[in-house]
Simulated scan of single mutants.
Amino acid sequence: MTEPRPVALITGVGRTVGIAAGIALRLAADGWDLALNYWTPADRSIFGDSADAGLGDLVSALESLGAAVLPVPADLELPDSASEIFREVQAGLGSPSALVLSHAWDIDSGMLDTSVEQFDKHFAINTRASWLLIQQFAKQLETDEGRIVAITSDHTVGNLPYGASKGALDRIVIAAAKELAHLGISANVINPGPIDTGWMTPSVREHLTGLQPTGRLGTPDDTADLVSFLLSAHGAWINGQLLKSDGGVSS
């Protein structure tokens, strides 16, 4: 009798070139069924009207790897979205045993030109929604082991609300590593460094590549490799860590 595939919920899977899409493809190949949270209006606000082009092809690619796939659109700015997402996932796939937080609201602004509205929106999506999703994940976990992995960033200068909200996310996830350990849940944060997922101009790409000791920029696959390890039995003893998987650019 074939063992049922475990279920992972991945947020921010709205674009085929994003980090979340790379993670989804790796986890499907690893044997996970996948719930994919996305919100097209947010992706289009940041990346343009064609941001979600090819999303259906991504779902097809995941299914071809053997995964059952459940797309779950939800606006993470709304406080009720976390509980609604988990209700839909449990009804469609069953209880997730892994939560990968790869969503982000990211509109550049600095110390002097950030509006209160944008500051609050970044924290609502990047920080509050992540806390609420972690909370719901812990409450619904039906196995004796669970995994949480969040994608973060230390880009704060000239990008104040994004960087600050991601910094708060880091603290929440690391707190979860201790507060939820009695449930068998591990929680870690990955900082992948600069990865070109469609936002870099040629000059930005050239500049950031020049800062890389490896001589190349990171790819979604680089991040997906580490997520795959942390969700596996081999990564079970790693807990409460902020892991830099950035090719040495921050060293």
Rank of each mutant, 00 (worst) to 15 (best):
R5V: 07
P6D: 09
G12L: 06
V13E: 06
V13C: 15
V13M: 08
L25T: 12
L27K: 05
G31D: 03
G31Q: 06
G31A: 05
G31F: 04
R44F: 00
S45T: 07
A51L: 10
G54P: 08
V59T: 11
S60P: 00
A61E: 15
G66D: 11
P71K: 05
P73Q: 10
R87D: 15
Q90N: 10
G92L: 05
G94I: 09
V100Y: 04
D106Q: 13
D108R: 14
D108M: 12
S115Q: 03
V116Q: 14
E117L: 10
F119N: 04
F119T: 02
N126I: 04
D144S: 13
I151T: 09
T152V: 08
D154S: 14
T156F: 06
G158D: 09
L160Y: 12
L180K: 07
A181H: 04
H182M: 01
L183K: 15
A187G: 09
N188G: 07
N188P: 05
N191A: 13
P194V: 09
P194A: 12
T197P: 01
G198M: 13
G198Q: 13
G198Y: 10
G210L: 06
L211G: 08
Q212R: 11
T214H: 01
D222W: 03
A224N: 08
L231R: 02
A233E: 15
I238D: 02
N239R: 10
G248Q: 09
